[in-house]
Nucleic acid binder design. Structure first.
Lengths: 194, 194
DNA sequence: CATATTAACGGAGACTGTCTCCGCTTGCAA
DNA sequence: TTGCAAGCGGAGACAGTCTCCGTTAATATG
């Protein structure tokens, strides 16, 4: 007879595997930040003191690695949403989060690059990350609609799309200002028609 | 003595060179549309019945080729601006052009990809194209400001950035609707505060 | 602690795409 | 016609991706 479970009662993962995984992530983050989303994967492996095989076993595709790096950032954004929602009036929370979002993406170009990649081919990567971000802005918008500060027919995703645009073209020196202005325009345009 | 000019009085370009150049462009356009901005250049060369050397002489970098393909589209957008400005009231012209812009970019993913590329590294490519587009929206916004329909402190570039965002995330089936809604939000948010 | 088991490692190398060099071809001017 | 430079194009060096598989060593077990 097999063991109690139909699944082979998976042994706990090896310690060195865990360590390697983390080192790879760390190095990858640095590399993507420095060289953009096209950084050489073999180089990353080398810097993390593992063979290419190891890297590819942990992260079968470039996108997988990208997503893993990307994930912690996304989690931070999601957390911020919760904080803002608790400590600020609806519209302010929305505005604050939008600004943070732009700031994040613009600073860590990785994410922008990742989002762009998604556009290119219809792969399913980043799906879970998208879900988290969508949920964040959806929640913020819903609250603002309920408080009557935002018009009812506003689709949160529309805002998100606009934000990605701002973040994308953040090469000019004054993008911080630009982002702030644009967020204000978006919010102004989202108020009830009255 | 040399010829009349200090410049060696450049001979007119060879006919076959011209033909090849055009065939490459044609094939490239198809390839970029089908496979995205990463289509294999050697493949493009092959399909255009030229050697890779020829392709690279005409277009030394991928970006150069991308830009060349991109250019005619941009010219069409610039032309549309002129038409709209002549035949529509200011705000309508602005809205119409914004919609066209989104439509264009979303359909021909090439351009979006190109714009994205620009984000990644601070190369100077597409500069002239950007200039043309900037000029178009600047002109539209200026006219709308003068007619008093749009608030004075609006920076045209901000709008452009938002538009690129919409276009980027145009994978969902209803992006047409989404784009329309977002353009309306942007315009609503751009009206004078009164 | 000794040992068996097997997860995990890592690097050689096949493969794919980029880009260059340079000998050959050919359109054009005289 | 003919000379010649503009233009061609492919062989091949190089760089990056990804896989296969023999080896290593972390864990479970007695």
């Amino acid at each position: 007879m097999a063991t109690k479970r139909s699944q082979p009662a998976a042994r706990k993962p090896r310690a060195d595997a865990q360590r390697n995984r983390e080192r790879i992530l760390e190095v990858a983050k640095a590399a993507f930040t420095e060289f953009g989303a096209n950084a050489s994967l073999d180089d990353i492996a080398k810097q993390a003191d593992v063979g290419p095989g190891t890297l590819y076993r942990h992260f079968p595709t470039r996108d997988a690695l990208l997503e893993a790096v990307y994930r912690t950032e996304v989690e931070r954004l999601a957390a911020a949403e919760r904080t803002f929602a608790e400590t600020m009036p609806p519209v302010e929370a929305l505005r604050a989060w939008m600004l943070l979002f732009v700031d994040y993406i613009a600073t860590k170009k990785i994410i922008a690059a990742a989002l762009n990649t998604v556009v290119g081919d219809p792969s399913k990567v980043f799906e879970s990350c998208h879900a988290q971000i969508w949920e964040a802005i959806r929640s913020l918008v819903t609250r603002a609609i309920q408080s009557g500060d935002i018009r009812e027919d506003l689709d949160p995703i529309d805002l998100l799309r606009a934000l990605i645009g701002v973040a994308n073209v953040s090469t000019s020196p004054d993008w911080q200002q630009s982002a702030r202005r644009l967020v204000d325009i978006l919010i102004a345009g989202s108020r009830p028609v009255k």
